[in-house]
Design a protein around this nucleic acid. Structure first.
Lengths: 221, 221
DNA sequence: CGCGCGGCTGAACGCGCGTTTAGAGTGGTG
DNA sequence: CACCACTCTAAACGCGCGTTCAGCCGCGCG
């Protein structure tokens, strides 16, 4: 995770880091020559080490996923909910990896699916704990709820990134961590409010829907 | 909105429709030659009519935005909330335009921002009405809540599209309406549940957060 | 020492892109 | 008829991409 100042690293690793940064910033449409220049090497050397551009991307994917896995393991054991809320301030630390993930999700691919699925699974187990401990309401469809929460959260992230890009020119060069913190700031309060009180004043809509789909009654809150 | 079977249309319009369909399916990386072939004309003619690929895209953007505006005006006056919930079944009808919008949001650009801002504005006024009529809880930050709801909804859509693509090969060719209906089906119940009851059992988190940011007290539900 | 081998480069190749150019076909107008 | 405006095409151009190729350096080993 430490994206050291390049000098003591293998050339291979330097190229990989440069690629992660460049791909995260400009997307995978970024040229091999740009990556090579960033890393201070010739385009041919990139191919020499990784076989092809796809090979390079695969290595970036793997590295990023590994970084995330390590980071997540630590976070899951160390943090409280409120710490998580505040943790976004540390986002700069993970800015390049974070940017890469956002881009990977935006442009589709292996990391995207793996990442999202991992998040869903984590959310599910975490919610289960929270329900058991009484801080979170039970659900008729815990798995669906976990997926819903993750899909909306990740999606909100994408929208934030896209709006930040739309504000600038055609070529993005948007700081992902900054965009994240920005959206977080504008959205945290409404989000918390919604999570606390819900949106609707009655369960009529829910009842109607459930009546229309099957015969169950709404569990009381 | 009627994407008629191509024959009685101006060649210009035929190219435009082909471009909307092709861009919606494959993204804007799709080649001019592909669009030309779809429309049954030569690549040069596309340039002749629209000046450049960007010109073509601009025309597509404008046309799609106009379609949406018309469609939305009608929907806003005609539909009830429950009808809106069920309206997704009609999605196939607007499949090409819908696909184009999803792609436009995914790849960033003018339509994306306009579309999302329009949705936010609509949501805000709609929520205001609903609050007045007592079906929706008031919020300390109505504008923020509207933005939150739209960002999460749109974002969920993007995630759905991306996951659908990840399931297929590299070249997507995913039916956007189908992907939408799929995600809708798996997500509607958890969503409604969340909107009705909220997620948390107490307002502690919200209180803590608000205490940490300013001095206001939490409004009782 | 000599020799090979891996890291590394500059130059080139082929390809597909958006775009340009020159001109053919066609229909309306003096 | 001659002329023109307009739609439309085939062919080519230039560019940037990913990739290949032939060869240069420097270090460790027999």
């Amino acid at each position: 995770m430490r994206s050291v100042d390049t000098d003591d690293l293998t050339t291979r690793a330097r190229i990989r880091d440069a690629a992660i940064a460049r791909f995260g910033r400009d997307g995978f449409r970024a040229g091999l020559r740009a990556v090579a220049t960033d890393a201070g090497v010739s385009p041919a050397l990139v191919i020499h080490h990784f076989g092809s551009k796809d090979g390079l991307r695969a290595e970036c994917d793997a590295y990023v996923l590994r970084s995330i896995r390590d980071q997540k393991a630590e976070a899951m054991t160390r943090w409280s909910p409120l710490q998580v809320i505040g943790a976004i301030d540390d986002a700069e630390q993970y800015a390049t990896v974070f940017g890469y993930v956002v881009r990977a999700i935006l442009e589709g691919g292996a990391v995207a699916a793996t990442f999202v699925e991992g998040m869903v699974a984590d959310a599910e187990s975490y919610l289960e704990e929270a329900v058991a401990s009484g801080t979170v309401r039970p659900s008729v469809d815990p798995a669906g709820r976990a997926r819903y929460l993750i899909a909306t959260s990740v999606g909100m992230l994408l929208v934030a990134q896209l709006e930040a890009e739309a504000g600038r020119g055609v070529s993005p060069t948007v700081d992902p961590a900054g965009a994240l913190r920005e959206i977080w700031r504008t959205v945290l309060l409404p989000g918390l409010e919604l999570m606390t009180f819900g949106l609707l004043t009655s369960s009529d809509l829910l009842d109607e829907y459930r009546a229309a789909t099957d015969g169950h009654a709404t569990a009381p809150p």
